[in-house]
Every structure is written in C-alpha cells, then in structure tokens.
C-alpha cells in the first residue's frame, strides 16, 4: 500500500474512551523497554565502589571516567572501529550481490527459482553455532583468519538471503511496465537498472542496508570465532576484558552504552521505513 501516509484522519468518536488505555499500555511497554537500558546508563556513570557499595537509583558521584577509559585505550576503541569496518563491508557486499538477484526473482520465472529462493532462506535459518567451527577452519586455511573481510563474508551467510528477501518485496511493488517502457526507449539493462530502477526502490535499498547493518552489528558468535586480535569486534572485547580484569562493572556498562549509540543513530534515519522493512517490503 503506497498511500498509507495519506489516509484520512479516523473519527475519534469511536475510540475516545480507549485513548487513555492505549496511552497507558504504550507507556508501560516503553517503560519496560527503557528501564534496563536506563540501569545500564546509570551504572556507566558510577564508580565501581559506588556500584558495589551502595544501591542508588541514580549516580551519587557523577563520573565520566568509565567512558574516558574506553575512549583513550586503543584496545577498547579499536573494537568499535573493527566492528564498524566489517559491518560496512558486509553491507556493501550483500547489497551488491543481492540487487540483481532480487531483480531476477521479482521479474522472471526461471528453472528452479522457487527452490533457489527457499535454499537462500535456509541459510538465514542455519544456526550460526552449526557453522562456527567449519568457518574457523575454512577461513584459517585460506589465510583470512582475523581479518575484517572474513567476518564480512561470514555474515553474508544470513545477510544476503535477508537482503534478497527484502529487496524482492520492494521490487514487486514497482510495475513491470516501467521496465518495458525503458527497454523500448533504448535503455540497456545496466543503465536502466542504475538510472531508473534503483532510484525507484531507494527506500527498499535503504531498509535492506539498515537490516544488514543491524544483523551484522549485533552478531557475536561468528565474529568472535573468526577474529583474535586485529579484527576483534567490540562485543568480543567486552566479554574478554571483563573476564580478565575481574568484572569492572562501570567500564563494562559504559562499553555497553557505547554499543547502543550507532544503532540508535542509524534507526533515526530509517524510522519511517522500519515498520515496512520489518515486514520485508511485503505490506
């Protein structure tokens, strides 16, 4: 439905007594979502002695030392850099290969198309735990262990099928007549695809990019298995440093807060498309 944004205002008469209940449910739910996050932020602004010594709902002695520790220590902040590098790489690779494939699935029938599509999806269903060890051996044997590209490629396992799925959904919404008109006008496939088609599904590409970013950013098992030092993601840095230094709660909380920031920033840009994107373009 392309015209959902211009739907006329619904009559309030029907739902007047319910407005309050709805607001209450919404506030309760958002409160439930935000309370644990608040607690994390709260802890990140305390010193360790305060965390362990007294129980308080907000920091008594506000301190930014935990953040300073992370932002000045390369062992910490390189984790963020590494994560961002492989996430961006993965997003670019996934979209590049998924775009033509999604076009093929949305426009043509060909031998084995349905099987192929389901086979792609099965990779989204494959438990990463199944692949952890073989991945480790595969990438070690071709000398890619502990590189950003290894993690980026490994994450393609679930991100490429997802990108194909989302893009196919968005492409289906573009009338086929547009393709045909362009070909009659003498456009080659490549030029048509880049100049006409891609702008038409720009929001779909944005959504797919967002989802690839998201799933690559949140994944830990594979990225931890495939890296040791040079490409170690922030998530792994957290687990290891914590176990080594005897649970430095304040720094741990601060590192956690900083991992939420990129996601929150990205989400703001795609907020109007999130809902449609989660429906994989199928609304």
């Amino acid at each position: 439905m392309a015209d959902m944004s211009v739907a006329a205002p619904r009559s309030r008469g029907l739902s007047l007594p319910r407005v309050n209940i709805r607001a209450v449910v919404m506030v309760l739910y958002l409160g439930f979502l935000l309370l644990p996050i608040y607690w994390l932020i709260n802890m990140s602004l305390k010193t360790n002695s305060e965390i362990l010594g007294t129980f308080s709902l907000w920091p008594q002695n506000l301190t930014f030392d935990n953040y300073r520790t992370i932002l000045t220590d390369p062992a910490w902040y390189m984790g963020y850099v590494n994560s961002l590098i492989y996430v961006v790489m993965n997003t670019v690779i996934s979209l590049t290969v998924a775009l033509p494939a999604a076009y093929a699935f949305s426009r043509y029938r060909f031998m084995g198309d349905k099987h192929l599509f389901f086979w792609l999806l099965t990779n989204r269903m494959a438990p990463p735990a199944v692949f952890a060890l073989p991945f480790f051996q595969l990438y070690s044997s071709i000398g890619l262990f502990d590189t950003h590209i290894a993690v980026a490629l490994a994450h393609c396992l679930f991100n490429v099928p997802l990108a194909v799925w989302i893009l196919e959904g968005f492409m289906r919404g573009v009338p086929k007549e547009i393709d045909e008109t362009a070909y009659i006008d003498g456009y080659s496939f490549g030029r048509f695809f880049v100049k006409i088609f891609m702008p038409l599904i720009a929001s779909g590409i944005g959504v797919a990019a967002f989802f690839n970013f998201m799933f690559s950013w949140v994944e830990l098992l594979l990225s931890r298995t495939l890296t040791s030092v040079n490409a170690k993601p922030i998530a792994a840095t957290m687990t290891r440093t914590v176990s080594a230094s005897g649970l430095d709660w304040g720094v741990l909380a601060a590192a956690g807060v900083l991992t939420i920031v990129p996601g929150a920033l990205v989400i703001w840009f795609v907020r109007n498309y999130i809902a449609k994107g989660f429906a994989l373009g199928r609304v």
């Binding site: 309370l35 607690w39 949140v218 830990l220 909380a253």
Partner: peptide, 23 residues
C-alpha cells in the same frame, strides 16, 4: 515510539545479555 521500540533490536546480543545480567 518507533525509534524507542526498535532500540533493543539494535543492541548487540551479548550486550543484551550483559544488560540483563546486571539488571
């Protein structure tokens, strides 16, 4: 609401674990 609701989805999974471990 959309942004706040989507927030937990974008937290790395081990941080989700850490949040609840602490909480």
């Amino acid at each position: 609401c959309l942004v706040l609701m989507a927030l937990p989805l974008l937290i790395p999974w081990n941080v989700v674990g850490t949040i609840w471990q602490i909480f």
